[in-house]
């Protein structure tokens, strides 16, 4: 399939009505190709999280088109957008968002349950994904028994196990120290080299530096869009 994987065409997102109306995104257009590693930066309230939520099919534009793989999805039903998340997207959050009192293995298995994969395959793929992020020995550990960095790697394994087209990382290193942050970024870079498109929101220049492209949002609009050769 040619053309961009993700494309915003004049996307606006407004909250509230009348006087109280807030324009989180104001006619934003950009596109992301397959295999890119894009960092999105901007001050809080700049619209970067809103853009991320729309890309992740968790939110929909008030106006404009959001095309995923060339297909308009912004106006699709909740059901259809859930299916796009299920089959093409993997999320990595700042707060890890793992299920408590549930083993790392079962956390990684979760998206594949909704895909209806047979249990044996789910387990095999979950183990492989955990091995990929370097947590082979921790499959039975629950989130509370893992460090922050390890939890984030479980979350990446969960995103990975579904073999997504895109990993959407929302401040993935926000809760981690510098050392762990670097480990996570290197892992994301490695995955990117394997062909997975990565879109990451961050407010840390150091982390953004890993990405091959930087988009900066200010007041609901893009003020900068730089492509670099390969990042770090």
């Amino acid at each position: 399939m040619d053309g961009p994987l993700i494309e915003f065409r004049n996307v606006s997102r407004r909250y509230g009505m009348g006087e109280a109306e807030v324009r989180a995104l104001d006619g934003v257009s950009f596109s992301i190709n397959r295999g890119e590693f894009v960092a999105i930066m901007g001050p809080s309230g700049s619209g970067k999280s809103t853009a991320m939520n729309i890309i992740g099919c968790l939110d929909r534009p008030s106006a404009g088109d959001y095309l995923f793989g060339g297909v308009e999805v912004g106006r699709q039903s909740q059901e259809a957008r859930a299916l796009i998340r299920r089959h093409y997207l993997g999320f990595v959050f700042q707060g890890f968002n793992l299920l408590d009192r549930t083993s790392a293995l079962e956390n990684v298995e979760l998206p594949m349950i909704y895909r209806g994969l047979p249990r044996a395959e789910r387990l095999a793929r979950s183990r492989a994904a955990l091995a990929r992020v370097g947590l082979d020995g921790r499959a039975d550990h629950q989130p509370a028994q893992l460090s922050g960095g390890q939890q984030q790697r479980v979350a990446i394994a969960r995103a990975l196990a579904g073999e997504p087209a895109v990993i959407l990382a929302d401040e993935p290193t926000g809760n981690l120290d510098t050392h762990r942050s670097r480990e996570i970024m290197e892992l994301l870079c490695a995955l990117n080299r394997e062909g997975i498109t990565i879109v990451m929101v961050t407010h840390e220049e150091d982390m953004a530096a890993y990405a091959g492209r930087l988009i900066v949002f200010v007041d609901g609009a893009i003020t900068r869009d730089d492509r670099r050769a390969g990042g770090v």
Partner: peptide
């Protein structure tokens, strides 16, 4: 609530 959010984000439909 958060668990439900996680499930929705990994592709659970409302019906599920």
């Amino acid at each position: 609530t958060r668990e439900i959010g996680i499930r929705l984000s990994v592709g659970a439909t409302s019906a599920q």
